[in-house]
Structures are given as structure tokens and as C-alpha cells.
Design a protein around this nucleic acid. Sequence first.
DNA 1: GATGAATGAGAATTCATTCAT
DNA 2: GATGAATGAATTCTCATTCAT
Lengths: 223, 223, 223, 223
Amino acid sequence: MLDVTTIDPLRDERALRADAQRNLTRILEAAAEVFAEAGAEASVAEIAERAGVGTATIFRRFPTKEDLLAAIVEQRVRGIADSAREAAGSKDPGKALRQFMVSAAAAYIGDRGYCDAAGTRVFAQPAVQELVDELVASLEQLLQRAKEAGEVREDVSAADITILLMAVAQAGLKVESVVPGAWHRYLDIVLDGLRPEGARPLSRKALTRKQLGAARAPAPHCR
Amino acid sequence: MLDVTTIDPLRDERALRADAQRNLTRILEAAAEVFAEAGAEASVAEIAERAGVGTATIFRRFPTKEDLLAAIVEQRVRGIADSAREAAGSKDPGKALRQFMVSAAAAYIGDRGYCDAAGTRVFAQPAVQELVDELVASLEQLLQRAKEAGEVREDVSAADITILLMAVAQAGLKVESVVPGAWHRYLDIVLDGLRPEGARPLSRKALTRKQLGAARAPAPHCR
Amino acid sequence: MLDVTTIDPLRDERALRADAQRNLTRILEAAAEVFAEAGAEASVAEIAERAGVGTATIFRRFPTKEDLLAAIVEQRVRGIADSAREAAGSKDPGKALRQFMVSAAAAYIGDRGYCDAAGTRVFAQPAVQELVDELVASLEQLLQRAKEAGEVREDVSAADITILLMAVAQAGLKVESVVPGAWHRYLDIVLDGLRPEGARPLSRKALTRKQLGAARAPAPHCR
Amino acid sequence: MLDVTTIDPLRDERALRADAQRNLTRILEAAAEVFAEAGAEASVAEIAERAGVGTATIFRRFPTKEDLLAAIVEQRVRGIADSAREAAGSKDPGKALRQFMVSAAAAYIGDRGYCDAAGTRVFAQPAVQELVDELVASLEQLLQRAKEAGEVREDVSAADITILLMAVAQAGLKVESVVPGAWHRYLDIVLDGLRPEGARPLSRKALTRKQLGAARAPAPHCR
DNA sequence: GATGAATGAGAATTCATTCAT
DNA sequence: GATGAATGAATTCTCATTCAT
């Protein structure tokens, strides 16, 4: 045993990290599942149980339940931001926008925790903010191109898209267990509302990026 | 006083009922306020305090916090249903629909408790169901006339309207404290999506009334 | 029963209050004992158990463990302040001061919680502050008369007395279980230090009342 | 590296010891700092972090947090004992006693951990006891000479001095953040109390050495 | 009928200490 | 030898609901 250790000191380190990483992964997986199913008010104990660790182990990695939720939200936003970046480079921007919105809404629908977290302090975390900014930037590119192609009305912004997505997702979530996928229908209607045909002037200004990112409510159900 | 009581038991009963009725009214008013401001997770104690009664008095009338919330939701839905009935008789169905949706969304936005309750067991209560049915019926009339007037696409249903309203309200609520009234913008877009111009076929069927009413999640934040 | 109730509506109220008062008394007694024995870091659970109530019952009366401790401290300070007021009116101020300091030190010695609380946020509570001010005022009277009688050096203040008492008590507490009452000896030495004979100039100014009352540390062991 | 290790095991051992010694030193330094600042309830994790080692490394050397605190206390007492030994040889015993008490009180004041540990099981550790005995022995010499010089009353003992120091330090600590150095004033008064002028008979016997060293309370804040 | 009191069942969070690598 | 990870046992505090008066 000593030999092995001596031969490759890194091994020891790697082993530890592997172990920790495995646990961390399990925690994140469990948290993602539990938050997705039960929403942000899920208890840490429930997550710990699903992960097969003690609650203290979770609090070692994430000083606060809110931090854990933020980590999950971060993953989710990262995925959406990636989709948006990909979509931004597409040849057919109208189609790409539609596809992006479908995939984003699908992601949101599956994640009650994410929906609960929207508009809370969780989104004020720098890491999340950064990803949101990235997402918005990609979306703006995509939107610009879609507008030039005549597929989208001129007066909508990237911030509008993110909020409308949230709207469809939240409402869709409510009926999801009764009619899975029903949200597609509502997204279709919203998408039609985004088209230039029959567009009527909007009565309010779009949110600025800062407004979009402003932390508002305390994190959900964290006392 | 004692004499009077003895002489006419009915009077006593009446007096008690008046008292009880007054208490009930105060409870409902307080609950409406508190739930609207703080959402469904508001504590019963807070409501009792605002109503100036003991918590036990509340539980005498409403066996469960959920039942109290349901009563409030009932009031809210009743108001919306009234609006819908009124709108259904309007001369200009397109305009009436728009006005109805604005007022309904405004009502939802101002009521966090209602938004929290949407899609939960609370909506499964018979009294609420009944009112929802009434609301949907009025909306169907209104919609039919708006379609005939060419103001609304043919393929949307009353259920769609209620869900889209919820969508706009929930998303609007998240940004309401940052940019009050921003939800008007999102409602505008949705309204444009409901118009016949540029309407594309919807990929899913509308929800039936039964599906719309099916209870799903447990009541929010009740342990 | 109705008759009785009707005759004297207060009875019902009194009964409730009597019940609550009894529990409150038990809580306060238990808290006084437990804090006195185990210090401020004693757990609320321990106090609840000794009082024969649930912890939630304690938290209903005292929103915070710190508030409970403050209530106990308040009682203690009130007792000391009463002693001081009485002593201030004595004929023999030198003897009265000595007796006061003995009784105060004895009170402190028996109360670890009080000693732990000294110099913490607990003493910043208005009710406690007020009593401390009263105590200091009485002490100043007493001191003035003792100085005039030539029993106390001119340069000491009431604040000095309270701090020296604390000093003797804290140190005395450490040896109390080994040699009960040993603190008398240390108090004797301090009392001799307060006499005019052989008094040497003090190198620092006395604390002002405000400085004496300034909240400093967070409450002990309250997380 | 492997070769060297194999060739000369002692070398390896020496190297390890040097390493271990360095770690031990860092742990002790960190613990001294942290305990001094935050008191005995400082967490082991904080000390480990400041020392740049893992917590397990600390527990390897010190089976218990209490043992670590004892080691720190030992250092502190050693320093005080050194001062006392030095003072005992001074030409002007009255002045030397005063200077010793000032420096000792200053040391205590700067060390919350030490103050927390006073009168607890920590002082029962043999190593600490031994140093306390040494301290007391030096103090007795010093006292004897000071008494002979007429600077100190006849009836005080070395144990009294150590306890009065503790008293001044503990009380001084409470006001230290408000009026730094205020403890000098209280020490002045105690010093005057130790002088022969106006000394009145003490009502209790001095503690014996054994009594001074008897362990009493459990170690502070260790669960 | 009404009320405030009481409480059991949690929830988040901390920490000394042990363990696997 | 050293380390960071893991955790059991506590701790403070909350709240829907029941009970005694």
C-alpha cells in the first residue's frame, strides 16, 4: 500500500476527489430531481435521503439550501444558454427561435424548482446572472436575425422571450400532470403573438437587462 | 340582557349568527388581504391577528387552512366569472374580450394566494369548480362571438384563455415589484397571438373542461 | 355554567390567564434555574423539559432564546436595583454599601446565566437598561453618602461598583463549587480597595453611564 | 525520493518529524490566535483553516478540542509563570508585584480562550497544574518579600492574587471593546485593596493550592 | 361559540469527531 | 502521516392544528 502511495502521490488526491466528486454528483443529481419534482420548498433532508448522504454532507458543500438550489438553477440556465447560443448561429432564425423556445419551455416544465426560483434572490447570484446575460445576448442575436427575416415582430426583446417562456412554463406546469405536453399549445399561441402579422403596438416598454436581473423576492421557502 | 335572551331564544340565535357572520366576514376579508399580499404560505396566525379573532375561530369555520384559501379563491373566481358574464353580453366582443383579460390578469396579479393556488387541490373543491364552469361557459359565449366578429382565431377555447391568463399573471408577478404593470406588455403579445392574422395551426388539442378542473398538486405550502 | 359566565365574564378570562400565568411562571422558574446552573448556553429544550412544557410553548412567549434570558436577567437586575434603593436610604452608608455588595455578589454568584449575559446584547434591552439606570442612580446616592461619611474613597463611581461586583462574582463562580462562599474573601479585598485609607490615584477615568450600558457582544451562545 | 527513503529510514523519520513539528507549531499558533480572538467556542475547523492543515491533523495531535485548548492555556500560564519568577527576584517587590499583575491582566484580557477556560476541566490537566504550581510558588516568594517591605497586607496569599487577576480580567473583558484598557482602573482598586493601609480582617480563609487547582466545570462550549 | 394556549412534527444549520484514501 | 469528507447529535425556531377554559 505504501508503495502505491509513494509511486503516485496524486493517486491519493485523485481518489479523494473522485470520492467527493461522486458524492457531489449524487447530491446534485438528487437535488435536481427533488427540486424538479417537489419544487424549491423540498427539504434538504429529502434530497439527502435520495442522495444517500447525511444532510450535513450537503451543507458542507452548499452552506445554504439556497446555494444548492442556485447550483441546480445554474445548470439549468447553462443548458438553456447553450441552446440559445446554438440557435443564434442557425440558418433559419425563425425556425431556430421556435425550436429554442420549445426546448427551453420543455426544460422549464420539467423543473418545478427552477420555476419557483425565477424572480427570486437565487437569480441574483453572480454565476446565474452571468449565464442569464449570456443567454440574453444570444437571444438578442437570434431575435435580430429573425426580425430581419420577417419572422418576428420588431418590437419584442430578448427579455420578453425569457419572460414569456417562463409564463408558458409556469402555466403549463399546472396542467402537465393532467395533459402532458399541453404547454405546446400555449407556446404556439405565444409564438403566433410574436409574429409580425397582425402585431399591434405594445402598451409598455420592454424590461431592460438590469430590470430583468434585479433580485426581488427572498429565495422561495427558505427561512 | 339576560332577560331578553331568555325571552326570545331566536333573538339570541340571531344575535349569535350576526356575531358569527361578522366574524366570518372579518376572517374572509383578512384572509383575502393576507393571502393576496403574502401568498398561500401566509400563516393562519397572521390572518387571525388581522381579523382580530383567535386562530381557533378560523379553524371552527374552516377545518383546514386549505379550506380557507379555497374560500378566498372562490371569491376571486366569482368576481372573474362575473366579469366574464358581463363581457359575454357586450356589443363589441373583441374589445370586451380584451378588457376582460386585462381585468382578470390585474386581479390575478394582485393576488399571490390565488396564483399559488392555481393548479392545486384547492381548485378541485366543488364550489370552486362550479364557478370555474360558469366562468368557462361565459367565456365560450364571448369567444364564439369574438370569433364570428373576426377578432379571434377559430381554434382557441375558453380553457386556453384561462390558462393563458394564468401564464401572464404568474410571469407578471415575478417582475411586478421591479416594473409594476409590465405584465400588460406580455398580455398584449398573447392577445396578438389570439388574433386570426397569421395564426398557425396549434399542435395540441385544447383541454376539456374536465381536464381543466382536475386537481393535481397538493395545496401549496401546507404541511 | 352559563349563569356564572354571564355573571362574571371576567372569570373566564381570569381562568385562561391563570392557566397561562401558571405555565409562564413555570417557564420562568425553570429558565431561572437552568440558566443559573448551566449558564446562558443552556438549551431551550432543557428548560422546556424542566418546566414540563414543549419548546414551542416557550417560543410562543419568548420569540427568541435571548428574550427569555433577558427576562431572567431583568428579574435579577430588578432585585439588585431594589436592594440598592433600599441601601441608599440607610443610616449607615458604609455598612449599607458593604451589605449591598455582599447581597448583590451573592445573587450573581448563584446565577451563571446572569454572568454570561453581562456585557452582551441582552443588557441592551430597554427594560434591562432602565433597571440598570435605576440601579446606578441608587448606587450613586449611596456612594455619595458613603464618601461624605469617609467610608469610601472619593474617586470611585457607581459604574465601578457594578463592574467590580461582576468581577468578584465571575471569579468567585469559578471556585464556588470547590469552596462555596470563597468569593466573600475577594469581595473583602475589593471593599478595602474602595476605602479612602491608602487610596492611590486611579490611572483611568471611570466609565460613563452610556459606556456602561453600551451593547457589545452578541448574546452568548445564541446562534 | 523513494530511494532515499529506503536507504535511510531515519532520515525519513527525521524529515517527517520536522514536517510534523512544523505542523504542530502552526496549529498551536493558529489555535492561540483563534481562541484568543473568538474564545473557547471557536470551531476546530476555523483553527485548521488558519493553520493551513486539515482538521484530522489537529485531532491526531490533540484527541479532543479540549486538549488543544489546554495546550494553549499551558503556553499562556507558562508565560505568566515566567513573569512571576522574574518578578520574584526583583529588588522592589511592591513595584514588581504591581508590574506583574498589570502584565498578567493584560495577557488575560487579550485571550478570551484563556478566560473561558479558567475554572474548567482544562485547568485540571497535569501539565497546566504543574505550571500553576510553579506560578504560585514564585508568587508566594514575591508576596512574602512585598509583605516584608510593607507593601502588601499580611493576610493575602498567592492564590488570592491569581483569582483577583482573573476577576479583573474577566470583568475587564466585558468592557474592553467599549473602553479599551478600562481594566487598569479596576486593577488599581484591587491593588489598593491589597495594601496594608486600612486592611480589615478577611472573613474567609485563603484557598489551598489543591483547592485552587481542583477541576470543576466541564470544558467550555464543548458538546 | 370563542379564544388563546399548547404542542408535535418538522426545517435549516452547526460542529466535534471519525473514516477512507 | 496527512487530509478532506462524512456524519450523528444538537440547536434554534415555525406552524397547522387541537384543547381547556
